[in-house]
Design a binder for these strands. Structure first.
Length: 570
RNA sequence: GCGCCCGUAGCUCAGCCGGAUAGAGUAGCACACUCCGAAUGUGAAGGUCGUAGGUUCAAGUCCUAUCGGGCGCGCCA
């Protein structure tokens, strides 16, 4: 596609002395109101250089470029040069590209197959998968999709919380009060019961804690029986997590979690020591980070066991050695901002230049109206319940509408679960929010179902148009029929779609894509209402169908980046 | 106490590297289905952009202070 900004900057540069192409490019902006043009050049900054009043400069520039065939119209309004691109060319350029590329519209090869690791989801085994976990899971998955679309090779890692003294506790509890059948039937719930019961009983019987520690030590030393139990717990839990991942349509390339790195840490403790970074303090080993204005980082506890930071260092080095990543992205809650600052700093101090390729992508907290979520107090909302209720509601709506009931279940799942995903990816990830049933189950306005619905209706138009018209549109169309205001606005948004994907990648911010496809859907719906698409005039019909296809492709691809399906009927 | 993040319409949020009259959705109000799917569209209403200073031709956007909320700050992850 033509890069209009660059082309305009090029034209402008030829008509303005003493200002570079880059400077001009930098000055071009989009007017607040599309009625004022497609692109605008504010001339305030030029006043100093040209020693003229900005409105005069704008007038001069406007007059000098108005004959360029790139523009339909150029006008000076106060200090602005407002440029209207030739709608005919523009429409053809955008729509042809969007229908030609189809599922690849918006795709890029800037990634050049460089490897990008995205770590996300990473739940703790034996703890319920609640609504708070949706954030890392869905945001991370979408970021991975976006980088994939940008041409990078992606490794998706689920860094499971599958190790630590909690497993000693669980084994002890299982041996005392548990049984196999319960665990198999409902792994998470049962294991959580063991865990909480352990804590309750331990209040009266402190020897339990010692027993748990001893059991964990056995596990660490690879004792057969403990290993088997741990492995079994892990597998059963994973089965349950997988059920939720399947519902969400999310997958991973690796489930290597904390346990995998449990034996890889001594090397780094030693390395830190050799590099003179380690210091002993009250029996613990620490790294001082004063000169970076960060608090002390704890590497080993006074009993010699390692901590989170050491594990993350080990994991990062392992990943560098295994994958030789270009970027190593961690989608982890903002509560751990300091932790990430610390260990990335330590990596740098250890002399690993790729430390700066590790990026923490933080997100805000989910709470409930009653306050923070608490597994122990039973104040949680299970993600699976949210998904099920959303699907249920969708099913009801589909039945009510009675539209094409072929595969209700499949559609209800795509739309219901899509609604939850879309809702999660609507706002900037850094924002905290309070979970609300009303909000996730709202299917009107700026929601997933709204966008999917728009897509489904576009598909419906294409069906009604017939294969012949669609085939014609693919071959060519007369863009003069799609230059009306609402069509042009839709085309502008379609034109921006590839850039939006880039920006979302640069900022690790899926919500940028979410918002853009809402904008496209709104523009499409306005176009749909303003103009009759399937007219008697064959050429007009073909051109409009081409635009419908273009919009449909952009919406579908955008939804795919969010991890959502785009049903053709709903 | 120190550090980081957030504060824009009743509610949920956008606002590109500072640029024109601060925009959507939602709730409430008024409309539009004999018409390509009404999970839709249109209109009106709703704002001292937390507050106070400062920088600038120009500040929701940058700087300083302050208030409110969230998170974090050596033996959890």
């Amino acid at each position: 596609m033509i890069n209009y900004r660059e082309k305009i900057a090029d034209v402008l540069t030829h008509h303005m002395e003493g200002i570079s192409f880059e400077e001009v490019l930098d000055m071009i902006e989009k007017p607040a109101d599309p009625k004022m043009g497609d692109y605008a050049l504010p001339c305030f900054k030029l006043a100093r250089v040209l020693r003229k009043a900005p409105p005069m400069i704008a007038k001069g520039i406007a007059e000098s470029i108005e004959d360029e065939h790139l523009f339909e119209k150029v006008e000076a309004v106060n200090a602005y040069v407002n440029m209207f691109v030739d709608r005919n060319d523009f429409a053809h350029e955008v729509v042809a590209e969007a229908i030609e590329k189809g599922d690849d519209f918006g795709r890029s090869d800037v990634g050049a197959h460089r490897k990008v690791i995205v770590e996300y989801s990473s739940p703790n085994i034996a703890k319920p998968f609640h609504i708070g976990h949706i954030r890392s899971t869905v945001i991370g998955s979408s970021i991975a999709n976006i980088y994939d679309f940008l041409g990078y090779d992606i490794v998706r890692i689920n860094h499971l919380g599958d190790y630590g003294t909690q497993f000693g506790k669980m084994i002890v509890a299982y041996r005392r009060w548990g049984n196999r059948e319960d665990v198999v039937r409902e792994p998470i719930k049962t294991l959580l019961e063991y865990y909480t019961r352990f804590h309750k009983e331990a209040e009266n019987d402190p020897t339990l804690e010692d027993e748990a520690r001893a059991t964990f030590t056995k596990l660490e030393h690879g004792e057969k029986e403990e290993m088997e139990l741990w492995q079994w717990f892990r597998e059963e839990s994973l089965k349950e997590f997988t059920r939720v991942y399947d519902m969400l349509g999310i997958a991973f390339d690796s489930y290597k979690g904390e346990s995998f790195y449990s034996d890889k840490m001594p090397r780094f403790v030693k390395e830190l020591e050799e590099k003179g970074l380690l210091e002993e303090d009250q029996g613990a080993k620490i790294v001082r980070l004063d000169e970076y204005d960060l608090p002390v980082a704890l590497i080993t506890k006074s009993d010699g066991s390692t901590l989170y930071i050491t594990r993350d260092i080990a994991a990062a080095v392992y990943r560098k050695e295994t994958y030789d990543f270009y970027k190593n992205i961690y989608v982890v809650a903002s509560q751990q901002n300091l932790h990430f600052q610390q260990w990335i700093q330590i990596l740098e101090m250890m002399g690993y230049p790729w430390a700066r390729d590790c990026v923490h992508v933080p997100f805000g907290l989910v709470s409930m109206e009653e306050g923070a979520m608490s597994t122990r107090e039973g104040r949680v909302i299970f993600l699976e319940d949210v998904l099920n209720r959303a699907v249920e509601k969708t099913r009801e709506i589909i039945r009510e509408k009675n539209v094409n009931t072929e595969n209700i279940e499949e559609t209800a799942a795509a739309v219901g679960i899509g609604a939850v995903i879309f809702n999660e990816l609507s706002n900037y990830r850094i924002k905290d929010y309070v979970f609300s049933w009303d909000h996730v189950l709202n299917f009107e306005g700026e929601t997933g179902p709204y966008v999917q619905y728009t897509h489904a209706r576009a598909c419906s138009i294409l069906r009604n148009a017939g294969e012949e018209v669609v085939a014609k549109a693919m071959k060519g169309f007369d863009s003069t029929y799609i230059t009306g205001d609402s069509a042009h606005e839709l085309e502008s948004l379609l034109y921006e779609f590839p850039d939006v994907v880039h920006e979302a990648g640069d900022k690790y911010e899926p919500s940028i894509v979410t918002r853009h496809i809402v904008d496209i859907a709104q523009a499409y719906n306005r176009f749909y209402h303003d103009e009759h698409i399937l007219t008697d005039n064959e050429d007009e019909k073909v051109a409009k169908v081409a635009l419908v296809m273009a919009a449909k492709n952009a919406i579908k691809n955008g939804l795919a980046l969010l991890g959502m399906e785009a049903p053709e009927r709903m």
